[in-house]
Design a protein around this nucleic acid. Structure first.
Lengths: 339, 339
DNA sequence: CTTATTTTCCAAAGCGCTTTGGGAGGGATC
DNA sequence: GATCCCTCCCAAAGCGCTTTGGAAAATAAG
């Protein structure tokens, strides 16, 4: 069943049927009603490809995911996507997930743009200097960046205050009297990771306290890494009494390692984690409950979808830029150092 | 830059250019070379919509995700998608994630089909009686089911041996001498959930042991639920000495609750979890290391993508059906009951 | 040197939709 | 009763690609 058939069956022109279905004012309410009913009855839906071809609009936004993706297609990405979906569903917009081939992200983006399969792109995990941003901006293709970059081209982005988060966490521990604080965060090179390290350093600097470079660790976010690195850290001399973990996954490993060494979390070793808020992992329910810097990555997804819609609807396309604050929530896993 | 322009610039017809780029044999190698080079140089990629419109093929497969998706868009889905991506990327096939609106899954599927946006669909989380399967089969639309259903229509599916998994887990605990074993699994109604319960019951039945219905719990997979339910269970009389958890997330909560009650995992209370294998959560690294029934959900995704490709390539479209065995891996979290 | 066969390329007809630029028909206005 | 203006509808021209059915050029066969 296509438009032509439907029109014939109704004794109307294709034009009228198309207009009736797309809500144009040039058709009478009676006809519109009749058309809508017939469409429903015959299960007619416009062929999306033809529609897009004719309109030049696509009705989908693109996201690029590494193919061998243990790395980035983890729980963070999933939550983020869930947030996007929440908002985009209202607009009947789908998303197209392109697997990343050969790690040549730039060419995947170019392919996505020139094959006209998406109206806009969401870019994630920016590095401080990120070729993708300049390329997309130069190409004039609509996109929103999740995160921040130092590129000096106008574009929309949303980021959380990663520096502030780790600044608060480190400050809190330092003020409690901790003097050897480790941080186990994400991979180096990404903006969020660098910003967090900056916050950590800033807290020390402001207090005139030295930094032990061996205590700054960058790696993937995973339970394993948290566990292994913490075991290693706790064998160092002097032993760190506080640990800041970049993700809840990491924190799970850290807290296991602390227990495995025979210490108690929040006593001999304090732990603060950054919590992206996973529905299946609740910091306040943990034992001991976990002190966290919290910011919902799902909410960020929703807001980014919104920004994208605004941008696509032409409105004020002046770049929207938002930094979300991160709150430090004190719970039982952090306390003054104990001998 | 479109086909027409490119053809003009090359002094060739659109036909020839199109054929050259799509590998048809009717063009000389010399011309093909020339065309390919020019396309690359001018950054030409065929407009996907026009291409699909002309060909009737789409180059994308559809997946449906709940919009308010704390429920199902969790780590399991993410891992599964990662598996799909791994395989599909080789074929330059994208996937289209349609958010589920109003929970009316059937109509979303129908829309997806009739709008011709995907070549095939992947269906997840089947119920024992699942309307979607019969609908898709009747419509003759290519799809692969992740899981199983009782519908008597020919279709491809891949499932793991959920019944066997819980049968093994329960049997192991029973054989160790446990007599009060709880299971905290996924929501009722889904096939996997029912099959697991079946396995659990079978183990008891075969040994002529009674089942305490209060010990069978169905709910979402989450840390919280695991925690709360376990606290409740451990206040029951008689107290269960073994718990089987349907997911690693649940198991995290369970093991926290066990410790919170002052017991040790693997001593007073044994714990076996089903492990879908998350790269950021490693059962053997836990403390104590976790006895699991293991089956990689990512691998399942990869295989399902493969089945889909086979089906689309027309080959033997006789329904492919696979049940993957699940292995019980004994570690420290399960042992004989201790007073 | 013809004639039959390939090889190599092309014009034009769709694919199913949106949208431009009008054209009937029916009230309202004078 | 003629004129004007809406309201409601339509024919036809794209959107950018693939593919059918030939035709011209090059090669092989007689």
């Amino acid at each position: 069943m296509n438009l032509k058939e439907l029109a014939e069956r109704l004794g109307l022109s294709q034009t009228t049927v198309s207009r009736a279905l797309n809500g144009y004012p040039e058709v009478s309410e009676a006809t519109r009603e009749r058309v809508t009913r017939a469409a429903l009855q015959h299960g007619y839906t416009a062929n999306a490809n033809a529609r897009r071809l004719a309109m030049g609009r696509v009705g989908a936004i693109g996201i690029i995911i590494p193919a061998d993706s243990s790395q980035r297609f983890g729980p963070h990405t999933a939550e983020f996507l869930a947030g996007l979906a929440e908002r985009l569903s209202a607009h009947e917009i789908d998303f197209l997930i392109s697997p990343l081939i050969n790690n040549d992200e730039i060419s995947v983006y170019k392919r996505l743009i020139s094959s006209k399969r998406v109206d806009a792109i969401i870019v994630s995990h920016p590095a401080l200097v990120d070729e993708r941003i300049t390329m997309l901006a130069k190409a004039g293709f609509p996109f929103v960046l999740h995160g921040r970059t130092e590129a000096d081209v106008p574009h929309s982005w949303l980021d959380i205050d990663n520096q502030g988060a780790f600044y608060q966490a480190a400050s809190h521990l330092l003020d409690l009297g901790h003097r050897h604080i480790a941080m186990i965060d994400g991979l180096k090179g990404f903006t969020f990771s660098e910003h967090r390290e900056l916050g950590y350093r800033q807290a020390h600097l402001e207090r005139g306290l030295p930094i032990d470079e061996r205590l700054i660790i960058h790696d993937r976010f995973s339970d394993d890494i948290g566990f292994a690195e913490t075991l290693r850290l706790l064998s160092c001399e002097p032993q760190p009494t506080g640990i800041i973990a970049g993700s809840m996954m990491t924190a799970l490993g850290v807290s296991r390692a602390i227990r495995a060494k025979g210490y108690q979390v929040g006593k001999q070793v304090s732990l603060i984690a950054h919590d992206d808020v996973f529905p299946y992992l609740n910091a306040s329910n943990m034992v001991p409950s976990m002190t966290t810097t919290r910011s919902s990555i799902r909410a960020a997804g929703t807001r980014i979808a919104e920004m994208l819609m605004l941008q696509l609807d032409g409105a004020a396309v002046t770049a929207m830029q938002e930094v979300w604050p991160v709150e430090l929530i004190l719970r039982q896993s952090s306390g003054p150092p104990v001998r």
